[in-house]
Design a protein around this nucleic acid. Structure first.
Length: 560
RNA sequence: UGGGGCGUGGCCAAGUGGUUAAGGCACGGGGUUUUGAUCUCCGCAUCCCAGGUUCGAAUCCUGGCGCCCCAGCCA
């Protein structure tokens, strides 16, 4: 197990329940499970569930967490998703050991349990059409009514079920239903479906089955088979708990797990539903499941987010039953806290403009020393080449700048990080009036960026030697949507509020040459800008592409 | 107007009858600083409303109000 995942998580109402169950000796060993359906990629909402379930397994003695693919609907599920999900869980830092399961592992047992239900006259084969079943179900205020097939004999039901299984009927022709109560106020109890016919190959079982179990039946039984003690799921399943318990009460299962619901995570300025994520990917609104703007784990991984930061985020947001929309700033804070510690610093100019030091000898070059991390001496020093022609950030020069602007404007002295004090003398403009070059003079006595006379220089800016710099593409990411809660958009489509500037690509960035040596995994801070890493898909040694993971906090930009 | 949940500061979230109502994020302000970063210090709520019980209530009771979920042969 990844060492950094070992800090115990803060408690919550679910852990209180578990504590009580241990105290009362209801359980000696806690077993949880993370049960994704392999019909899409995992997102940060799943990370919350993963951290909850695997976190409990880490913190309680002898506890374990199973990874179980809830693969009961071959129409939507793919091996591609299974592989991606495993990778994401591992990347997040969790280990299921030998507890890798699939609901499909239990298809035969599930079928035997269904037969047991039929034999108890607690389930029957219905032959109503899907439309009729809906009609017979009633609605929120009116009770449903019994299907005319509800009183078939056990023998007939057994026979029909067997034939459903062997593929003798067309899809939709018959349906196995639990016999509960068509007038139940909880609609989930109005004879819910247990098995439907699907003539479809399954990623794991191939074409050995023509019927597939429904979630409500398969999930509780699978939990019981695996000896799950606490089955944690999201709030929308609260209404299904009576059903979860009903099945287990009818059947002789090895255990009766406790289902506990908690609220799903919502993050502002993004969407979290699988349906919408699918739509964004398939409609090419983004480049794929791993688009760095998406809240998917693969997108965040590519963007450069660290597993530690995501875990930290999950522990900060807590676990409750309240609907919530967490602000992106919480995630960004977790990220910056981690990145600040692990990322070495470098100088990189994203929007370059020439700075010419007029009094610096034309052909001279010198090597200056830069510190790799101001708060961590162990990261050491590096050489930074200096010469007459440099690049600085275009907005580090301003004409008619206010007093509080600590960067270049005519007559103002600024420190070039690790280098010299430079006083801006004048600029050169093109015919349109755009500044094309900034000129200045340096003070040779300030080498290293300090002066003997104790003269105060408020501003320090980053720079890069023009002749030594490497050119790279840099992608700046911003929130995917322009409104905080796009999913709630009553009028129009949520896609209408997609942020057109969610990615800004800069092609002519000038980076300190050392950055060409970074690995794909390495996160770096570009001083004064933010944290960056190479794009794992597009970056090449001779065509570097960097992603901005998250910007630095900027109290100046806020005021300005 | 059936059933199930939820309501503590801008956003999360502790709190389980006696606490100055934790903490984080955000926000505002001070200090340090060769990143307007980091770090650091300070400030920032009487708990949806109304009654009631109690010496004492965010915590108990009653009645309101608000928000979310459920009518897939999806999970």
């Amino acid at each position: 197990m990844n060492e950094s995942t070992q800090d115990p998580s803060p408690s919550n109402f679910i852990r209180h329940i578990i504590d009580a169950d241990i105290a009362s000796a209801k359980h000696q060993q806690i077993v949880t499970r993370f049960p994704p359906e392999p019909n899409g990629y995992l997102h940060i909402g799943h990370a919350k569930s993963i951290c909850l379930n695997f976190g409990i397994a880490q913190d309680y003695p002898n506890a374990v967490c199973h990874l179980r693919f809830d693969d009961t609907n071959p129409g939507k599920e793919k091996t591609e998703y299974i592989d991606a999900i495993k990778q994401d869980v591992q990347w997040l830092g969790f280990d299921w050991g030998d507890k890798l399961h699939h609901t499909s592992d239990y298809f035969e047992q599930l079928y035997q349990y269904a037969i047991a239900l039929v034999k108890q006259d607690k389930a029957y084969v219905d032959s109503l059409s899907a439309d009729d079943i809906r009609l017979y179900r009633g609605n929120l205020t009116e009770p449903g009514k019994d299907s005319p097939f509800r009183n078939r004999s056990v023998e007939e039901n057994l026979d029909l079920l067997e034939k459903m299984k062997t593929g003798e009927f067309a899809e939709g022709e018959h349906l196995l239903r639990a016999k509960i109560d068509m007038a139940a106020p909880n609609i989930n109890l109005r004879d819910p479906a247990i098995y439907r016919i699907k003539h479809m190959a399954h990623p794991m079982t191939g074409d050995s089955w023509h019927i597939y179990p429904m979630y409500d039946f398969a999930h509780c039984v699978s939990d019981a088979i695996e000896g799950i003690t606490h089955s944690l799921c999201t709030l929308e399943f609260e209404d299904h708990r009576p059903l979860y318990d009903w099945f287990l009460d009818q059947l002789q299962t090895p255990a009766h797990p406790q289902q506990i619901e908690f609220s799903r995570l919502n993050l502002d300025y993004t969407v979290m539903s699988k349906r919408k994520l699918h739509e964004l990917v398939e409609g090419a609104y983004v480049s794929g499941w791993n688009d760095p703007r998406l809240p998917t784990l693969s997108g965040m991984r590519r963007r450069g987010y660290t597993p530690a930061a995501i875990r930290d985020f999950c522990s900060r947001i807590g676990v409750t039953k309240k609907d919530n929309i967490v602000e992106m700033s919480v995630l960004e804070n977790s990220l910056r806290e981690d990145l600040n510690v692990i990322a070495p610093r470098a100088l990189a100019v994203l929007d370059p403009i020439k700075l010419i030091i007029d009094n610096y000898p034309d052909e001279q070059e010198e090597m200056l020393s830069g510190i790799n991390h101001p708060n961590d001496q162990a990261m050491g020093l590096r050489d930074v080449p200096f010469a007459k022609e440099l690049y600085i950030e275009r907005d580090d020069y301003m004409e008619d700048a206010p007093k509080k602007f600590f960067r270049f404007t005519e007559g103002r002295e600024v420190r070039l990080r690790f280098a010299y004090y430079v006083t801006c003398t004048h600029v050169v403009k093109d015919t349109n009036g755009n500044v094309t070059e900034v000129h200045g003079t340096y003070d040779p006595d300030t080498r290293g960026g300090k002066s003997e006379d104790g003269r105060k220089v408020k501003g320090t800016i980053h720079w890069v030697s023009a002749k030594h710099a490497v050119t790279a593409e840099v992608r700046l990411y911003d929130r995917l949507f322009t409104i905080a809660d796009p999913a709630a958009a009553k009028e129009g489509d949520y896609k209408d509020s997609l942020n057109p500037d969610s990615v800004v690509t800069l092609k002519n960035c000038q980076l300190e040459a050392s950055l060409a040596q970074t690995s794909l995994e390495q996160r770096v801070q570009f001083e004064r800008q933010g944290y960056f890493c190479q794009d794992s898909v597009d970056s090449k040694p001779n065509a570097l592409v960097f992603n901005r993971i998250v910007s630095l906090r900027d109290s100046w930009a806020k005021k300005g």
